[in-house]
Design a protein around this nucleic acid. Structure first.
Lengths: 204, 204
DNA sequence: GTCTATATCATGATAGAC
DNA sequence: GTCTATCATGATATAGAC
């Protein structure tokens, strides 16, 4: 996610990422992006024809980053529980390193859903593969019976929501104590894994 | 959440709610609010001095609505599990009736956190009461040991996130089949209750 | 490629008639 | 209270010199 090189185009991309992430498409100002990049507004339009095009460039980069290859993990040959653990670890790790991603995506998701969908399709996220794997684990009595979509929703929700609502979590749960907040996020991976396993694994 | 009466002020509030919810503070246009209310822009400024003030009026109404009295449920004298069930039912019921709330709050949460915090404090949400109740249930061996903040985060996440990310859930999980999507939301309450209970209740 | 200066337009806000 | 007309600002975008 570090775009930084030192060409002008890279400086613009890095600056635009920061401003768009902080303010969103509507809140961002071309002037602010230019200032942050250390250039002037005209150059932004020279490299990217319009604000819209610049935003799309940034948005696309971030989406690629935000959807890790969970389908790949899902199709591996390991036990189902092990796959869940890997997915949770992969997500929490990504979110700790780039905590701005959920807030950014959720903001733009409500503004212009179609823009996101094109990219989701383009990067080949295939939910059916995941549901099939869940169903298989149920048929094998590895886990209890439940609708695959709900299981997926539960896991993803517990991973992403505390990051998407970061300002609220910080204030309500930790009175803005950032050290405690960061510790909380690090703990999330183990907490979620244990919680899910206790909920769905069939005790023998 | 229905503001509708028929005075001009009420028409403005209703129109402003719709537009602010759909577009957010930055995306909303005074012209559009005026059109939706069937009046002209000047009247908006006559009733509410500025866009900012109008937004605050709407935001405050919605926040009051979004934080049901979970502290009240928490302090009742019922078994802990029964309280969790009531909280989940209350939340899902609210979200099904007003599915726009999470998206709206999350958008503004990232734009101006302090505005939300003032209101959260004002309406007296006290997380410590909830954590104490969770701790008590653990001390009584009703549920397994885990950090109260994580348990709360897990439950709230599973309730809210699928609504906050509605366009994504609709597209990725249901290919925009709205009937199936609505059924999914109705099922959420029972699914979450069972999931949480299986994860934390100590089997005797 | 990079800059200054400017065109063009949309928006929030106000003045003033009725 | 409600309207029309207008202002003031600030934004995206472009023209043109270097």
């Amino acid at each position: 996610m570090e775009i930084k090189k030192d060409s002008t185009e890279d400086k613009i991309l890095e600056a635009a990422k920061n401003v768009f992430v902080a303010k969103g498409m509507e809140g961002a100002r071309m002037q602010e992006i230019a200032d942050e990049a250390g250039i002037n507004k005209a150059l932004l339009h020279y490299y990217f024809r319009s604000k819209e095009k610049l935003f799309e460039a940034i948005f696309s980069k971030i989406i690629q980053f935000a959807f890790p290859e969970i389908t790949r993990i899902a199709q591996s040959n390991e036990p189902f529980i092990s796959k869940i653990e890997q997915v949770v670890d992969a997500y929490i790790d990504l979110l700790i390193k780039h905590p701005f991603i959920p807030g950014f995506i959720m903001k733009e998701l409500n503004r212009d859903p179609s823009g996101l969908f094109k990219l989701v399709v383009k990067f080949g996220l295939n939910p059916q593969v995941i549901f099939d794997q869940i169903q298989l684990a149920m048929d094998r009595d590895e886990i209890i019976q439940m609708q695959p979509r709900h299981l997926a929703a539960n896991i993803i929700s517990m991973c992403i929501f505390p990051f998407a609502a970061r300002p609220l979590v910080s204030f309500v749960l930790f009175k803005d104590d950032q050290v405690a907040l960061n510790a909380f996020y690090v703990e999330r991976a183990d907490v979620i894994k244990k919680f899910v396993i206790d909920a769905i694994v069939i005790k023998k």
